[in-house]
Computed example of a mutant assay.
Amino acid sequence: MARSRKPVTPAAENALDQMKMEIASELGVAERVRSSGWATMTSADCGRVGGHMVRKMIENYEQTLR
C-alpha cells in the first residue's frame, strides 16, 4: 500500500517547510535551495537536513516531557 505524502494536519506542512529552510540555513545550503530548488540538491544534503529535522523534533518532544 502506498503512503500518502499529504500531512495529517495541513498547518503542519508550513511549519515543516519553515523548519526545513531554517536547518538548511544552519547547514549553509539554503542559498543553493533558494536559487535552484530542492530537486537539484544531492541526496546527502537532503539527508543531512532531514536528519537534523528529526533530531530537533525529538529534542522538542523530550522538552515537553520534562
Rank of each mutant, 00 (worst) to 15 (best):
M1E: 15
M1N: 12
A2D: 09
A2L: 09
R3V: 04
R3D: 05
S4D: 06
S4G: 11
R5C: 04
R5H: 03
R5K: 09
K6P: 01
P7K: 12
P7A: 08
P7W: 12
P7Q: 11
V8K: 12
T9Y: 14
T9S: 14
P10H: 08
P10N: 13
A11W: 00
A11F: 03
A11I: 08
A11G: 01
A12P: 01
E13C: 03
E13Q: 12
N14Q: 11
N14M: 03
N14W: 02
N14F: 02
A15Y: 10
A15F: 07
L16T: 05
D17H: 09
D17T: 02
Q18V: 00
M19G: 10
K20G: 03
K20P: 04
M21G: 05
E22I: 14
E22V: 12
I23S: 01
I23M: 06
S25M: 05
S25A: 07
S25Q: 02
L27G: 06
L27F: 06
L27D: 08
G28E: 03
G28C: 01
G28M: 00
G28Q: 03
G28R: 04
V29C: 15
A30M: 01
E31T: 03
R32M: 02
R32H: 00
V33T: 05
R34C: 02
S35V: 08
S36A: 09
S36R: 04
G37P: 04
G37S: 07
W38P: 03
W38F: 13
A39M: 08
A39P: 01
A39T: 12
A39Y: 07
M41F: 07
M41G: 04
T42F: 09
T42S: 15
S43N: 09
S43R: 08
S43P: 14
A44G: 10
A44I: 05
A44M: 09
A44W: 05
D45V: 07
D45P: 01
D45N: 13
C46P: 01
G47N: 03
R48A: 05
R48C: 01
V49L: 04
G50E: 02
G50I: 06
H52L: 15
H52G: 07
H52P: 04
M53T: 11
M53Q: 03
M53N: 00
V54Y: 13
V54N: 06
V54K: 10
V54F: 14
V54T: 11
R55S: 12
R55D: 13
R55Y: 03
K56E: 15
K56S: 14
K56Y: 05
M57I: 08
M57L: 15
I58W: 15
I58D: 13
E59C: 01
N60G: 14
N60K: 14
N60W: 00
Y61R: 12
E62I: 06
E62L: 11
Q63S: 13
Q63F: 05
Q63G: 08
T64K: 11
T64G: 12
L65N: 07
